[in-house]
Simulated scan of single mutants.
Amino acid sequence: MQISILLFAGLADVVGQSSIELELPEGATVRDLINRLAEKYPHAEKLIRNSAIALNQEYAEQEQEIHPNAEVAVIPPVSGGEKPFCSVTEKPLSADELIQKVTNPYAGAVLTFAGTVREFTHGQRTVSLEYEAYAPMAVRKMEEIGEEIEKRWPGVRIAMAHRIGNLRIGEISLLIAVASPHRNEAFESGHYAIERLKEIVPIWKKEIWEDGSAWQGPQTGPWDPLKKPGIPKKTNFKA
């Protein structure tokens, strides 16, 4: 059977085309497709084997059979590599910029979470918050969270950005953007990312009040950065 294959980004550049035709035997699997592509384009083999295959706009397993007339696409790693986009910055955060990091043709849902500086906590008035981070390690731990999410929810893309420095009431301190084929995975993985960030990412905040200030520790339980990630709770959203 002859199938049409869509190529994107760096892979399209290397091959020199955005779509190709390929002959495969009846009953061929995704694994067969990858091997055939690597054989036909040896100069792009590493990128091909690091890419994902989508069948009819859904990510496919290696042993999944390719049917005639299926829409086939080869999806190379995004954002210049396999790591999710993560940053710690003193600059104001932009939801639009973060959404652009995760949006892709196979995402049916894009979810964003913004953590903002609130004025009142348990009746006490906050004037501002001061955030401090061990920035290199914080970024690395955010990337680890992204890798955990990829294992639990294949096909989900996530980006995270945390602001440091002195933030006024109403300013955004944390942004998380998640893109997934279906909305259920977006809600689940987004919630997982927030909770894991609180557990293992070395970022601290000082609450500055009208009459004093204090560094705040974790508010969801004892501090234990070696704690293994738990099994995420399922939501009731249907994709």
Rank of each mutant, 00 (worst) to 15 (best):
Q2N: 11
I5K: 02
A9F: 02
G10S: 15
G10N: 15
L11M: 03
D13I: 04
G16D: 01
S18Q: 12
L22C: 15
P25C: 06
V30L: 07
I34N: 10
I34V: 15
N35L: 13
R36C: 11
R36M: 02
R36S: 13
K40P: 03
A44F: 03
K46G: 07
K46Y: 03
S51I: 06
A52C: 14
A54M: 07
A54G: 07
N56H: 01
E58M: 07
Y59W: 04
E61N: 13
Q62F: 07
H67K: 12
A70I: 01
A73R: 02
A73K: 07
P77C: 08
G80Q: 00
G80R: 00
G81A: 03
G81I: 07
F85L: 02
C86G: 02
S87V: 09
V88N: 08
P92D: 03
S94E: 10
I99E: 08
I99V: 13
T103M: 02
N104M: 01
A109Q: 15
L111Q: 10
F113E: 05
G115S: 03
T116V: 10
V117I: 09
R118A: 05
F120H: 09
T121K: 14
T121L: 14
H122K: 14
H122W: 09
G123W: 08
L129N: 02
E130R: 13
E132S: 08
A133W: 14
A133M: 07
M142C: 05
M142Q: 07
E144G: 03
I145Y: 13
I149D: 06
K151G: 00
K151Q: 06
P154A: 09
R157W: 05
R157L: 09
I158V: 15
A159H: 04
A159F: 09
A159Y: 08
M160Y: 04
H162P: 05
R163W: 01
R163N: 04
R168G: 05
R168F: 05
R168L: 13
L175W: 11
H182S: 07
N184P: 04
A186S: 11
F187M: 01
S189E: 02
G190F: 14
Y192T: 06
A193W: 08
R196I: 12
L197H: 08
L197E: 00
E199T: 05
P202K: 02
I203F: 03
W204P: 13
K205R: 08
W215C: 14
G217W: 10
D224F: 11
K228G: 02
G230N: 10
K234M: 02
N236V: 11
F237R: 06
K238N: 12
